[in-house]
Amino acid sequence: MGATTVVLAGVGGQGTILAGDVLAKVAVAEGHEVKLSEVHGMAQRGGSVDTVVRFGEEVFSPVIDRGMADHLIAFEIIEGARTLPYLRPGGRLVVNRRMVAPLPVLIGDLPAPVDLEPALIAEGAVLLDAEALACEAGSPRSANVVLLGAASYGLPFAEATWTSVIEKRVPPKTVEANLRAFALGRRACAEGVCEL
């Protein structure tokens, strides 16, 4: 079997790196060969950031081309739309509804994109409000873990593995909120908001 590829697409500062790290560690814990690729530096100042996690029996390239991702988890809707061509036909698409306006939109040079939701739904997207669920979990900053929970529903790993990796990876004081966030994201999918 070839490698399975998950792309986490977002905006610098949204916590895609932590989410990618958790996902990679879960795959390791379940005995897979794993590669994770992320970009540090300038892009982290509010630019587009993609984290790629690949796992399977044998993984070569840590980065991918268009059409190679099996799962695309977008932490922000414009980034979801931008990264869409990386998702293979038939791949799984989970998109957070939140829009973070990029600079040209903030300053009025370009219009904010419209109708992204229907365009993404037409591509099979499952939409989610990760910030609202994070709030419900008790920590607005755990939106990335909500999205991880949503992603987890479609990945072949045991829930207990996720839980134990999250417990080790997040600051001790935030463990409970993060586990709640994860469960809410996962349940949102299981209950049909997020279909396979």
Binding site: R45, G46, G47, I78, L84, P102, L103, P111, A119
Partner: peptide, 19 residues
């Protein structure tokens, strides 16, 4: 080149910016 999904047009670029 394998068939891929069509890009969604007219997306604003996202350059890095001062915080």
């Amino acid at each position: 080149v394998p068939a891929t999904r069509e890009p969604i047009p007219d997306l604003p670029p996202r350059p890095p910016l001062l915080c």
